[in-house]
């Protein structure tokens, strides 16, 4: 359906249209979207004070967290909420966002509210979105795809510097986009090989995965070097974010299904986040083992065949992985608020 789900936002670039109720056609059979008045896919309104006697979790991330492909109730955030007594999960997931926009969403809507736990769930590929300055979006009345600006940070000597504030609304002509450095351009030959790989994979499912495994690729390669510019930027964003939080923080880097299916190694990103955990004294949750303990057939059912987002089953696995960690914080909260909770 031609229902537009997003509106311009001067800080984030865009957000869900506040209060929108929609259903999206999808290969998984379609899913329902319910948004709160702050413009996030969340069944709760964002109030400065949390409801009395409630453990409130602020959950941030991209489309995996927002739950593209599944209805609100089947997302890992909502599943977690129902596994704990007197718990409210405020979902600030923003589809298509980088960690930069996720931090801005937190600052704009969550930083000043009352909460007990902050869970940051960057998709490991978000590291690439952080260095992008523009995004593809639907155009005007003709509905064609156009490029618009997004907010982004650069890492300067004295810290993060925010650009594109307020985010311009105007469509950027292709010839005015920043030039892609030669080393980041995809060569014609490489592109052709990728298309051929994809075409064969349609006829011989698993072919693409096999070729990736044989090449022992560890993507995203930005995690390979701790001094890589993109990782330094992401680390700085997460460091500032943890510093700004007024509660306990958990970071849960979400793997792509290339990692879940063992097509990509994932060693590098896991190493970087472990280092970050030590550096910031923050709990980092690795959800890959929760997927890997299952057989390949089970893992395949955790994602949609074409759309690489988690199915209901995939969300359940993520919730399973997070549950024991959230439980510790929840129990600590219960202990300190025992009288009120009872």
């Amino acid at each position: 359906m031609a229902r537009n789900l997003f509106e311009h936002h001067p800080v984030l670039g865009y957000r869900f249209i506040p209060g929108i109720r929609a259903r999206v056609r999808h290969e998984g059979g379609g899913y329902l979207i319910r948004c709160n008045q702050s413009g996030f896919r969340c069944d709760h309104e964002v109030t400065p004070a949390k409801p009395e006697g409630v453990f409130r979790v602020v959950l941030c991330g991209d489309s995996y967290t927002a739950g593209e492909g599944v209805s609100n109730a089947f997302r890992f955030g909502d599943l977690l909420e129902h596994r704990f007594e007197r718990t409210q999960v405020l979902n600030f997931g923003l589809p298509g966002s980088g960690t930069d926009q996720q931090l801005l969403a937190f600052r704009e809507f969550a930083a000043d509210i009352e909460y007990d736990l902050l869970v940051i769930c960057p998709l490991v590929e978000n590291i690439r979105r952080n260095v992008e300055t523009h995004r593809l979006t639907q155009g005007a009345a003709d509905g064609k795809l156009v490029r618009r600006a997004k907010p982004y940070f650069t890492l300067e000597h004295d810290g993060l510097e925010l650009h594109h504030q307020p985010v311009p609304k105007s469509v950027v002509p292709e010839d005015q986009l920043p030039e892609i450095p030669p080393e980041e351009r995809v060569s014609g030959m490489y592109g052709a090989l990728q298309r051929m790989n994809t075409a064969i994979d349609r006829r011989v499912p698993g072919f693409k995965g096999l070729t990736t495994r044989l090449r022992r690729i560890d993507l995203p390669e930005e995690y390979a070097d701790p001094e890589h510019e993109a990782w330094r930027l992401m680390r700085a964003i997460l460091t500032d974010w943890v510093d700004e939080s007024r509660s306990d923080v958990m970071i849960c880097p979400l793997p792509t299904f290339g990692h879940v299916d063992k097509h990509f190694l994932g060693d590098n990103y896991r190493r970087r986040f472990r280092e970050l955990s030590d550096e910031l004294s923050v709990e980092v949750i690795d959800v890959l083992p929760a997927f890997w303990k299952h057989a390949a057939d089970f893992r395949r059912r955790c994602r949609f065949p074409d759309d690489e987002h988690p199915t209901r089953l995939g969300h359940t696995v993520i919730a399973d992985a997070l549950e024991p960690h959230v439980r510790r914080f929840h129990e600590r909260w219960r202990a300190s608020h025992g009288a009120a909770v009872r």
Binding site: N4, E7, H8, I17, P18, G19, I20, A140, A141, K169
Partner: peptide
């Protein structure tokens, strides 16, 4: 379509 949806369309353009 809600007022918010209409305004989102008009504002962005």
């Amino acid at each position: 379509f809600s007022n918010e949806e209409v305004r989102a369309f008009l504002d962005v353009n």
